[in-house]
Simulated scan of single mutants.
Amino acid sequence: MKAAQISQNQLLLFLILYFYSTLVGFSASNLIHISQYDTILVLCISGLTAGIYAYFTIKLANRRPNEFFFHYGKDIFPQWIHILFMGFYFFSFLHTSAFVLREYEDFIVQTYLGGTPNWAVGGLLGMVVAVTARSGIQTLFRTAQGLFFLILIADVSNTIFIGKELKWDRWMAFITNHSGHGIFAGTYTTIPFFGEVIVLVFIFPYLTQKNKTLKTVFWAIVLGLLLIIVNFVFLLLLFGPNLASHITYPMLEMVRYIRIADFIENLDPFLISIWSTTVYLKISLLFFLSVQILAQFFRLKDHRPLTFSLAAVMVALSLQMSGGSAALTSFYTNSWATYSYFIEGIPILYLLMDTLKRFIKKRSAKNNKGM
């Protein structure tokens, strides 16, 4: 089966939206609570770490650029270990997609559709995600490419219209207010958001101009980080760290400050609907990867027969998760980061093992030649 083709431009735009989606929408309050005015420094450190993740991940993928990680991984580690790791990835991608879906369900129900059951929201979005995954990964990246500039215009407009409400005298706090514990704790929690760049090892065969991937990803990290930082700076200047950390969805409250004359008010449904597409893109990619891994487990040439049944599992899993923003925040703070470091470090283990095996093989060949 001929692999779908994803251009470097599509990869760039998709990754920017991927980084932006849940970090700004769902995790802003928690990150500001932990790091206060050090949030900007935390984001910069996390972005730098993402570049390191990307370098090692792409280096591993470049060694077998046209093969899928699921297939060549057994040549690096013993097959049973490789299968175990792939099982971890299948569960991780499916669980993360269900978790983000649950966050979105709670957000929509609490904010706009009070009294609507979560299963209705989750079922509708789950169906859209399943259709997207069934259409293939190229459709997903083309969708991101088409929506990117609309999302960018909406975000830039938001920051422009909210500028007059900012309390600019808070600028000095970014220079004077620092906490070592806040920087460490915030960085530890935030790095996994950017560490999800390791998904590249699974989609690498789909990419065109593979030799430019590292440059593309670095630009995606820089531009995505810039977009995220602007939003966090505006949050801190508008609300301050104490108020922002006690608002469940501070970005929503910031959007609600927008007033254009006396006849255009309450733009938040429009802007939030645009932002929601970034969440949809992230869920769709993670779900697609879980479907792809499962299809490779069953040695299926086509992943499409699995999409709707696995989407039902994803929705059911999201509904079974502990509800409420407090419970979700507790999971992120106490469990998710540590688990993510394990999952995101696996490609580095493969790279180290592959490098070691190549070194041993090369040295053995040299000794045999010398004899």
Rank of each mutant, 00 (worst) to 15 (best):
Q320G: 14
S322C: 08
L328Y: 08
K301H: 13
I274E: 06
T338G: 12
Y257T: 14
I260W: 01
S322P: 03
K301R: 15
L271T: 05
S330Y: 04
R304H: 03
L285A: 01
I247V: 12
F287M: 05
L271E: 03
S290E: 08
F287E: 01
S325I: 12
F308P: 00
L328H: 11
N266H: 15
S322Q: 15
L281S: 02
F297D: 05
H303N: 06
V233L: 13
L319Y: 02
F287H: 03
N266G: 13
P241W: 00
I264Y: 02
T338L: 12
F331E: 06
L319T: 01
E265C: 05
S325L: 13
D262N: 14
L281Q: 01
L235F: 01
G324E: 06
T248V: 14
D268V: 05
V255T: 15
F308E: 09
T278C: 07
T248L: 09
F308C: 07
G240P: 00
V313H: 03
A244I: 05
S245C: 03
L319D: 00
F263P: 00
A327M: 07
I293N: 06
M251D: 08
S335T: 14
S284A: 15
V230G: 05
P269K: 11
I247Q: 13
T329M: 11
S335K: 13
A261C: 10
W336K: 09
R299A: 14
L235K: 08
M321E: 08
F308G: 09
Q292V: 09
H246C: 03
T329S: 13
H303M: 07
M251N: 14
Q320H: 11
L300E: 12
I264G: 09
F288S: 05
A326H: 10
L300C: 10
F288E: 00
A326D: 14
A295K: 07
Q320S: 12
N266E: 13
